[in-house]
């Protein structure tokens, strides 16, 4: 076919692009097993070694920050999922109401808002609130979590919104028609249908929070240093091999998670396709 010609061009572009995406990650993983403190000099005699992994786990500062980050990320993801789901539900299913445009604007703007602005504005809010009502007394886990929820709920809203928009709202109407009250309709019909979106929204919010350094720098207090903040201050001074080890662990966890879920989803899809085929065949 004549159109094949351009296809190899885009295929090459695709593979080069993927190489561009993965070469830095792979080099980071490789050097995490390097014995030398100079990250880029491969010490062939003593490598590979797990030395940096040992140092990483012995580093109390990093371990403490990691635990703090996990806690913040989990709380953020949970809060963002609740608020984002409600916002998505309101925007897709509640029809027109006064102030809808503002809500929809406030849910999409954080997607592109430069982080420095978000961070600055939230810190100024917390300072103003402290003056006004005496809360928050100090900037700590709470303020970081609030800030993280605010910028990550936008992503949850988008995911939930597009999932909900994919479902006919006659499903909910049918449930109402069959005598279920609105609250029941939400828990029996709407919620089960958007569970996949809620799950991926939770993971997305977790990642965004786990990853954030800029906003945290603004709203964190002295006693609450998250993992990205520790890493950031470390790598500003140059490469450090235990960060390589940390990165490798994180990549491994994420890759395992993504691959497992992809395989699972693929199986589900195949089973579904087979069942649908059988249903059609049975009817002939």
């Amino acid at each position: 076919m004549r159109l094949k010609g351009r296809h190899w061009f885009s295929k090459t572009g695709l593979w080069l692009g993927l190489a561009f995406l993965y070469v830095p990650i792979i080099s980071m993983i490789v050097f995490s097993f390097n014995n030398s403190r100079l990250v880029t000099v491969w010490d062939a005699a003593n490598s590979p070694t797990l030395k940096w992994y040992g140092e990483l786990f012995a580093n109390d500062q990093i371990m403490g920050a990691a635990w703090l980050s996990i806690r913040i990320a989990a709380m953020t993801a949970t809060g963002a999922v609740i608020l984002g789901t409600l916002a998505g539900l309101v925007l897709v299913r509640f029809g027109p109401f006064r102030g809808r445009a503002l809500l929809s604007g406030m849910t999409t703007a954080p997607l592109v808002m430069p982080e420095v602005i978000t961070g600055l504005s939230l810190l100024l809010l917390f300072v103003a609130l402290q003056q006004l009502i005496g809360w928050p007394q100090s900037r700590d886990v709470t303020t970081i979590t609030i800030a993280h929820i605010t910028f990550s709920m936008a992503y949850v809203t988008i995911v939930v919104q597009s999932r909900l928009a994919g479902f006919d709202n006659s499903l909910e109407e049918a449930a109402l028609d069959l005598g279920a009250k609105p609250g029941k309709v939400f828990f029996r019909i709407t919620l089960p249908l958007i569970v996949p979106a809620i799950l991926s929204g939770w993971l997305l919010a977790f990642t965004l929070s786990w990853d954030d350094v800029v906003v945290s720098q603004f709203v964190a207090g002295p006693g609450s240093t998250t993992l990205p903040m520790v890493i950031f201050s470390k790598v500003r001074l140059g490469v450090s091999p235990d960060v390589n080890a940390l990165a490798t662990i994180m990549v491994l966890i994420v890759a395992t998670g993504v691959v497992v879920s992809a395989i699972w989803m693929r199986r589900q899809e195949r089973r579904r396709a087979r069942e649908m085929q059988m249903a059609v065949a049975a009817n002939k």
């Binding site: 006919d168 006659s170 499903l171 109407e173 049918a174 449930a175 109402l176 028609d177 069959l178 005598g179 279920a180 009250k181 019909i189 249908l193």
Partner: peptide
């Protein structure tokens, strides 16, 4: 709707998937 003596069959059927 949930208190009316009516039931509806939807064009899309709206079966709970």
């Amino acid at each position: 709707p949930y208190e009316r003596p009516t039931n509806m069959m939807f064009q899309s059927y709206a079966l709970f998937p």
